[in-house]
Every structure is written in C-alpha cells, then in structure tokens.
Design a protein around this nucleic acid. Structure first.
Length: 351
DNA sequence: AAGCCGGGGAC
DNA sequence: GTCCCAGGCTT
C-alpha cells in the first residue's frame, strides 16, 4: 500500500515508535500529544518515562509528583487524569485494556486516544480522527461539510476503514497522522511529496488549501495581574499554591492578584503579602505576557527583597531555577523578568 | 454543539 | 499579531 510504504520510508523516528510497542508508553505519548506538538513532547516524554517507567511506578507516585513532572506542558488536567488512569489500571491487575471500548472508560481517554492506543498497541481496526486525519480526509474526499461535524467524521472514518483493509490498522492511523503533520499541513500542503496525491480530490480540485474549514475565532479576554515576587537573602522565591478557580489549579506561582484599571500594581502586590511576610519597598520589573485559553494576561512583576524566613500557610520558598513543585511556564517568564532587574546572580541565589 | 483548559511554534 | 496542534470534559 502506497501510504504505508511512504510512512516506512519517510516517517520520523520518534521515541514512542520503538518496537515492540509498550501499551503504557503508547498511552503516555498519546495523552501528552493531545493538543501539543511532537517537537515539544519528545523531551518531556523521555523525562516522564525515566521518572515513571511503568504503570506501577506512575500509580505509586503522588499526583503532586506527576503534576510537577508535567509542569510547563499545559492542560494540567491531563496529568491528573493520567495518574488516575494508572491507578485504575493497576487496581484492575496492571494490564491496559486492549480494546477501544474499554480504554474509553479510563479518565482522560476520549474517542481519539482510545482508538490510538487500541490500534497502535493492540492492532484493533479503529480509525483515529485527530486534527491531522480529519484535515487529510477532508482534502482527500473534498468534503462539502465541515470535517469536525458528525457527518464529516463519519465520512472520514469510512475512508480510513477502507484503507485498513489493505494494511495493518496501526500503520494506517500512524501514517495518516504523519502525513498530516509533515506533508498535508494546515497551510501550504506539499502535494508534490504526497503518496496519495494521485487520488486526492482536494488536489484535483486545484485548491487543496480550501480545506479545512476555518474555525471562527473568539475575541480574547484581556486581563492584567500583578505578581508579588518575594526573594529572601539567599535568592529563594516565595510561591503560593493556587487552590481554587478554573485555571492553573494546584500549581505554585508567586502570589497573584487581578489588577483593575487605576490600581497601583506595587501597592496591590504589597497587599498580597500583608500579614504573610515582612518585605521592603517593591520594585517593578518589565511586564510579561501569558496566554491561557482565550485569555491574554499581562502580568506586572513586583520584586520585594525580604529578610523573612517565615513560611505562611499554603506558601513555600523555592529555588527559582528548580522549583521542585508543580508550576506553570509563567513562573519562568516572571523569573526571567526579575533577573533582568536584579541580575541573574541575585535571583539564582548563586554567589 | 459549544465553551473551556496551557503553551509554544509557524506564519 | 493570528492560528493551530496525535483532545477531553462539562454544560
């Protein structure tokens, strides 16, 4: 089959493609790859497996440790669900379910991930309908309905099912995803390198970029925060755990507060520390930008030198370069901004 | 069906 | 700047 033949030659050499396929590793890679691009996953996948080499190791760990390992990857519910799934698997004997229907019952495993693990690790003939496959299918079939609609999904699934009559299901799924990621890309598809170009109705139509349908954009919500960055005499930074709210829950960041128009960020940041730690006058650093879902957040870091060794409840002192607690990539941006003001040696606590 | 959750890279 | 990505869950 031309598609799978192409994949055998041009498929990238990715760590989760090593044979034989370990179902646990396939599951970890698929969860990590949800809405996250391959290049960003590869190093984190290696590190995750070094720390949690099998499902028993993962189930034995605390959710806090798993979240810490997930720090910076985003969509932190994935980490909580993966950890919960590992416990379910171990409670059931330690083997992953081998069918898509059973896999689907694990927390954090939806239709896509269930199909991916079932086909890649167990050879079940179920199509995976991720963003890549839906785009490739929409172009190949020249769909006149949105690929993500119920009807579009059915049509693409039917096409993939046909392909599976001529090649192993896992190979077909993987090859289609690889094709979407490297050839039939969102913008400017490289039809000259495509093994399916001969039969592709999207290409024959003369305008393969007509697909996929553009998703409508939503106006981002602009938000401003202030961050109280307290450094003690040895360069350690004060963090506070985010306990409620919809975003970054359970992660550790400098105390944050929403800044309304007219508020003074230095004063508001100082208020966050009232009764917690003793600080000197706050100093502004250059604001950093951070995006979470549809929010565009501008964060004003305020730096406070502090002699205090006290550790208020729900707070902790960390080495800003190696926090050792679950956190967001926002912390790195804030620490960089602070270093630009104070000098890296002060912030790093070295020297 | 639609809205929401992180983050970074491509353009 | 905008858009998307090996999605899942909740409403």
């Amino acid at each position: 089959m031309r598609l799978v033949g192409w994949f055998e030659v041009h498929g990238r050499d990715l760590p989760w493609r090593e044979e034989p396929r370990d179902p646990y590793r396939v599951l970890v890679s698929e969860i990590m790859l949800q809405q996250t691009q391959v290049d960003r996953v590869v190093p984190r996948y290696r590190r995750f497996l070094a720390r949690f080499p099998d499902v028993i190791a993962l189930a034995s760990a605390t959710v806090e440790a798993v979240l810490e390992e997930w720090s910076g990857l985003g969509y932190y519910r994935r980490a909580r669900n993966l950890h919960a799934a590992a416990r379910v698997i171990v409670d059931a004997g330690g083997r992953l379910p081998a069918t898509a229907v059973e896999l689907r019952r694990l927390p954090g495993v939806g239709e896509y991930t269930a199909a991916a693990v079932a086909s890649l690790a167990f050879g079940e003939p179920v199509p995976v309908l991720d963003g890549n496959v839906l785009r490739v299918g929409a172009r190949f079939l020249a769909l006149d309905v949105p690929a993500r609609s119920a009807r579009g999904r059915r049509l693409v699934a039917g096409w993939v099912g046909e392909l599976m009559k001529d090649a192993p299901p896992g190979r077909v799924n993987e090859a289609l995803m690889e094709l979407g990621a490297t050839v039939c890309t969102f913008s400017t598809p490289a039809c000259s390198r495509c093994p399916l170009a001969g039969e592709c109705r999207g290409r024959t139509s003369g305008n393969p970029e007509r697909w996929p349908e553009r998703r409508r954009v939503r106006e981002p919500e602009r938000v401003t925060w202030t961050a109280a960055m307290v450094f003690d005499g040895s360069g350690r930074l004060l963090l506070r755990r985010i306990d409620g709210g919809p975003i970054l829950r359970g992660l550790w960041l400098p105390p944050l507060a929403r800044l309304d128009p007219g508020d003074d960020p230095v004063r508001l940041a100082a208020c966050l520390l009232e009764g917690k730690v003793v600080v000197e006058e706050g100093v502004r650093a250059v604001p950093v930008r951070h995006a979470i879902a549809h929010r565009r957040i501008e964060v004003h870091p305020i730096l406070f030198p502090s002699p205090a060794e006290a550790q208020p409840p729900d707070h902790c002192w960390v080495d800003p370069g190696a926090p050792g607690v679950p956190t967001s990539s926002l912390l790195g941006k804030l620490v960089d901004a602070a270093a630009a003001v104070c000098g890296p040696r002060f912030v790093a606590g070295i020297d």
